[in-house]
Amino acid sequence: MTSRVLLVSPATSPSLRQARFDDGDAIDAGGAAGARSAAGSLPAAARVLLSPSRRCRQTASALGLDGVVAAELTGLDPGRWRGRTLEEVMATEPEAVGRWLTDPGCAPHGGESVRDVCERVGRWLDTARDLDGRTLAVVEPEVVRAAVVRVLGLPAAGFWRLDIPPLTATELSGRAGRWNLRLGQPLAAR
């Protein structure tokens, strides 16, 4: 049996455009239009899952998808940095940001470390490998990063080296305990 997982990154939002730690904002008009234009371009799936964030739920809706929120696919918890821009945090806590970006086990913000999100998403992938049919998931970019780190057996430090553009699909297919990876396919307009 071959398992297939298609991870779709959300449409743009003000937080994403401003390099702001997710504050629960909505997708912007351009992101919504891009998602609507790609509606119907994704392959049929046995299940559709969503990161709990507002922007992932709205992206799924604009894509014409009806999904179930999966807590294990939550984006990285930025703790007390939520709602602040990276620039703002750098101005007040440069050492903390430096540690967070270089030490995958560090969580100076009181939220989740990169290593923690990689392990959480890795556990989910271990269960997804045994599911029949395709799983389509609209998830935060850091969930895609964590999945790629796991699939390729990269050290968690590789997490920040992966760029995940909005409205792209990363496809995983696996069998016999091994995953293959297809990165960053843009969603096609209908």
Rank of each mutant, 00 (worst) to 15 (best):
A128P: 04
H109Y: 03
G174R: 06
A91C: 00
L125R: 02
D22Y: 09
L50N: 01
E87R: 10
V97H: 03
R161H: 15
S15W: 08
A35H: 01
I164T: 08
G34T: 01
L152K: 06
G177T: 09
L101E: 12
A156D: 08
A60Y: 05
R175M: 12
W124T: 03
R80A: 00
A19G: 08
I164W: 05
P155Y: 11
L181M: 14
L86R: 13
G31W: 00
P165R: 13
T92I: 12
G67P: 02
G34W: 00
R161D: 15
E72S: 14
P94K: 01
G153C: 08
R20C: 05
R17H: 13
T102R: 12
E88K: 07
S53M: 03
G83Q: 02
V68T: 14
R47S: 13
T168P: 10
P43W: 10
D77K: 05
G64D: 06
L16S: 09
R17S: 13
D25L: 08
A91V: 00
S53A: 04
D163W: 11
A146F: 11
R57G: 00
E142A: 15
D25T: 09
M90N: 07
A107Y: 06
T127Q: 10
L162S: 11
A169H: 03
L63E: 05
G67M: 06
T74S: 14
S51P: 04
G24P: 01
P94R: 01
A146N: 11
Q18Y: 02
L7P: 08
V48A: 08
L154H: 15
L6F: 04
W124L: 05
V89F: 02
A32C: 02
S3Q: 15
M90L: 13
S53F: 00
W100A: 11
A188E: 14
G184Y: 07
P94N: 01
W179F: 12
R115D: 15
R134W: 14
V48F: 02
G158I: 13
V143N: 09
T12A: 13
V138H: 04
D66P: 02
G177R: 11
D126L: 09
A107S: 08
R55W: 06
V8C: 12
P78L: 06
M90E: 09
G98V: 08
P104N: 14
C56A: 02
V48L: 06
G122T: 04
A189G: 12
T168G: 10
I164Y: 04
C106E: 15
T74A: 15
